[in-house]
């Protein structure tokens, strides 16, 4: 476990709170940055807009990305990340309510590392969060960050 940032891209504050609660319950203690829409997420990652003062080299350990987002939707965010040298290797976990096959296929084709459907049952949600944290924050070795 390290203290690298988790970027949570989620427009629903209640889902955000539940997710944060699930992280806490699962002992995931990394700082979580929340972006409420696609634009905010990209601003954070590329250190622009509200995040101009951020160190652009400090990339999150993992991004949890909802698909249905205001302004720029999740799939477009993913596409942009994968097209950019700085972010193309960042682990992205799509975390969404949808279990449409289309979304699943498109997410993976655009380079998502994982696709998790948010269950209604909080217990299941908790279990999912725990496993995600364990895998992406502990077990997974991220690719070295490329500096441009």
């Amino acid at each position: 476990m390290n203290d690298r940032v988790i970027l949570l891209v989620e427009d629903d504050p209640k889902d955000e709170e539940l997710t944060l609660r699930a992280f806490k319950k699962s002992n995931i203690l990394n700082p979580v940055v929340v972006a409420r829409d696609g634009v905010a997420a990209l601003d954070y990652l590329f250190a622009r807009g509200d995040h101009t003062n951020r160190d652009p080299a400090a990339m999150p350990q993992v991004i949890f990305l909802d698909l249905k987002l205001p302004k720029v939707d999740g799939l477009d965010v993913l596409k942009t990340l994968r097209a950019d040298e700085r972010t193309k290797l960042l682990p992205v976990v799509v975390l969404t309510s949808s279990n449409e096959e289309q979304d699943l296929i498109r997410s993976y084709s655009l380079g998502a590392n994982s696709y998790v459907r948010k269950p209604v049952d909080f217990a299941q949600f908790l279990e999912a969060a725990r496993q995600l944290g364990l895998y992406w924050l502990v077990l997974n070795e991220t690719a070295p960050v490329t500096r441009s």
């Binding site: 539940l18 609660r21 249905k68 309510s97 949808s98 449409e100 948010k118 049952d121 909080f122 949600f125």
Partner: peptide, 21 residues
């Protein structure tokens, strides 16, 4: 259907999640 799948489930999740909380 997509909306149903996505949007109707989110409030349910809150109801269940916060009840649990």
């Amino acid at each position: 259907s997509y909306s149903v799948a996505h949007d109707l489930r989110a409030p349910l999740r809150s109801i269940d999640g916060f009840s649990q909380a």
